[in-house]
Design a protein around this nucleic acid. Sequence first.
DNA 1: TTTTAGCACTCTGTCTCCCGGAGTGCTAAT
DNA 2: ATTAGCACTCCGGGAGACAGAGTGCTAAAA
Lengths: 365, 365
Amino acid sequence: MLTLRQRSILKAIVETYIATAEPVGSKALSGKYNFGVSSATLRNEMAELIAQGYLEQPHTSAGRVPTHQGYRLYVNELMNGYSLTPDDSAELKNALRLKIARYDKLTEELGQVLSRLTNYAAVAAAPKLSSGRTIRRIDVIPCDGQICVLLVVLGNGVVRDRMITVAEKPSTAALYDFLATVNGMLVGLEPSAVTVGHLKALNEAARYGCGDIMAQLTDFLTELAEASGEMEIATAGEGNLLSYPEYRDPDKAKELFGFLNDADNVEWLPMPGDAPVVVRIGAENPAGPLQNASLMVTGCSLGGGYRGYLGIVGPTRMDYSRLAARLSFFARGLSAVLGEAVNAPAEEDKEKGDEEHGRAREETT
Amino acid sequence: MLTLRQRSILKAIVETYIATAEPVGSKALSGKYNFGVSSATLRNEMAELIAQGYLEQPHTSAGRVPTHQGYRLYVNELMNGYSLTPDDSAELKNALRLKIARYDKLTEELGQVLSRLTNYAAVAAAPKLSSGRTIRRIDVIPCDGQICVLLVVLGNGVVRDRMITVAEKPSTAALYDFLATVNGMLVGLEPSAVTVGHLKALNEAARYGCGDIMAQLTDFLTELAEASGEMEIATAGEGNLLSYPEYRDPDKAKELFGFLNDADNVEWLPMPGDAPVVVRIGAENPAGPLQNASLMVTGCSLGGGYRGYLGIVGPTRMDYSRLAARLSFFARGLSAVLGEAVNAPAEEDKEKGDEEHGRAREETT
DNA sequence: TTTTAGCACTCTGTCTCCCGGAGTGCTAAT
DNA sequence: ATTAGCACTCCGGGAGACAGAGTGCTAAAA
């Protein structure tokens, strides 16, 4: 229902608005781009675009601003795939040399890197470590005094530990027996698959001063089981948003900051299955404070079949094309690095697809 | 050199300025407090306070604002010890029921709690886990495929782990021998005390396919040794600052945010030995972006002889008295909880000193 | 029928001016 | 030493003026 010319006008408007943050008028537009038509014609076309809901006017006699719908059309059909410049990809690749020594700080570190890379607020999410992994080994290591360490090693090299205190230390032999029993029964199960029956049986085996340990192990396993399937989410770089005129009002900024920092709430983060990059523009977001912000999210493989998610939060007036390209490139690079850490595959197909990272998949509406 | 009356006038000015964020004039002051003197006299005294550097005027014919020096005197000598209300202490105690299941997220979680509790930006610092602890046990746990997990258990129940990949898996027996040798040689040492000699000797012992593991263990130990003595630092709740008029200018806010989030830099955080609460006001801070902010820091015991630090960052116009009280109470409570987790002492002396948390120790100048 | 030129109109943002209010410094009287 | 009084200063907010950018509409041109 939009003519070709209308589409290219919309595209031009979105792009200049993204660049300037100011309503764009017909004259300025016809000066910058060369449509071969006069500003009057542009005005007529813009009027039509307003009628169809792609643009709006802050007030009569102001320039035009894209609506959510306008951005959406832009993202879905209009915007160019962005070619990363050599500088871009060098920068991104460089950022990928991050240390992932500590798996449990992965989300935080990724968030920080990503926010620095994009100059927006970033979000990173990964399944909690125990999620869906089977128990490989349970161990108890006595330390100083009454302290012991409980260790649960899960699939893919994930280790969870917990410090406990015991009333009295079991003998080495008793501990050995205890561990043999426990491991015999629980290895191979997921924490969530440990039943009351298992625990009861183990409790009986836990004589000779291991009862105390058993109780705390039960707690620990329960906790691991409960964390299964949950996502851990970290945000970073909120401060970057203060640069953008949209967030110069500290109250707005504060609202969004507060929302992003409320780590308990993950509902707002889409977790795309296979779309390269999911974009949610303004009102498309379910959560209130995001309704005048935009969110871009992409998934990445964390190795071992686990998926993490990387995203960017910013004003609706975002450089979607460029950011989608960077986000997607970064996520793919990360997948390669993490996949490599686990599966050690050959990796040198990185160069081949640099151009076509830019196209974002439309959000299912 | 200040008369008693001047001191109480300064006190009144600081307190009303803290409450209102607006320059306080002689008339308003004489209306609110009852000094038994007229506003003219107040003016004379205020002029003297300006001459001595405790106050300043944004411009002629405006009210007065405390200088850093004024705040300093207030904090050192003028302010009342703040009595926590029952609500206060209930709230604080409640916050102490936080989960400290994951020692390695301690700083982040504490920072978040503290910022929520105070409505300022908060900072928490703790020594990196490996700092100064001896090796209790080293273990290697084979997982799926070529993945193994390297475990190093340190004193006080601190566990560090690392995922590694090996070219080929050693046999169970070889691994057993290898671990026996490694543990025999390294247990009881601090990671930083492991010498090249040790490693060389171990390398020779690492036959039967364990060479790969040994190399990665060496890396890991080196890393642990290097982290010794370093502090880990986390900030949280920067967004809270946006509420205060001092940070309504997004550029100011951004500068401070950026600074606080630069985790590499810890120079700016004082780590008091025994002072209840250290206060650094404005220009007393070494770091640029903090020079028009204030910082309150207190230490707390993390158990096992380790000390962490908790702090608050905000505008110089802070409610020092109240915050010092809360900070100190929180830190003491935390010390009790963490001390208990490690040493399990009796703890019920908590109630006794609620009144005198408020007095902050002067910064050594 | 589509495009364009022209024109009158509207709205914003900025600048200036103005004024009330709060506060000061000084002087003279208490 | 204190106070009352007074003239002066400065900020902040509101009213008015104005330039600039942009619009909608109409009538002419293609």
